[in-house]
């Protein structure tokens, strides 16, 4: 899984039928110190995340295992909203 900040929403009226009802968010990947890595991904939201929130997302075929994304054409899904992130004994993020 990777850490990311929700930086936007994608609206697509014309899309695969299997994606109807899915909330699509733009994520910017962060490193363990919450520094943006300049990598962007569009992910399906399975937890009700909002803009600017720090989230954890799963990529690849594993992303199709949540109840929301079962049998959907999905390669990234938000699986958690991060409360805190600790490196060594230092808390680098607290929600």
């Amino acid at each position: 899984m990777n850490l990311a900040r929700v930086t936007g929403t994608v609206v697509a009226t014309q899309k695969s039928e299997a994606l109807v009802g899915a909330k699509l968010l733009v994520l910017e990947r962060l490193n363990e110190r919450l520094k943006p890595l300049g990598e962007y991904t569009v992910a399906v939201d399975a937890v009700g995340a909002g803009e600017e929130e720090i989230v954890l997302y799963t990529s690849g075929s594993s992303a199709r295992q949540t109840s929301q994304t079962k049998d959907s054409p999905v390669d990234a899904v938000i699986v958690a909203i991060v409360d805190s992130c600790t490196i060594g004994n230092e808390t680098v993020f607290q929600r």
């Binding site: 850490l3 363990e32 399975a46 937890v47 009700g48 954890l56 949540t66 109840s67 699986v79 958690a80 909203i81 991060v82 409360d83 805190s84 992130c85 600790t86 490196i87 060594g88 680098v92």
Partner: peptide, 11 residues
């Protein structure tokens, strides 16, 4: 090197 905690997550 560290850990992450989350209350709101998929079941």
């Amino acid at each position: 090197i560290g850990f992450v905690t989350a209350t709101i997550k998929i079941p």
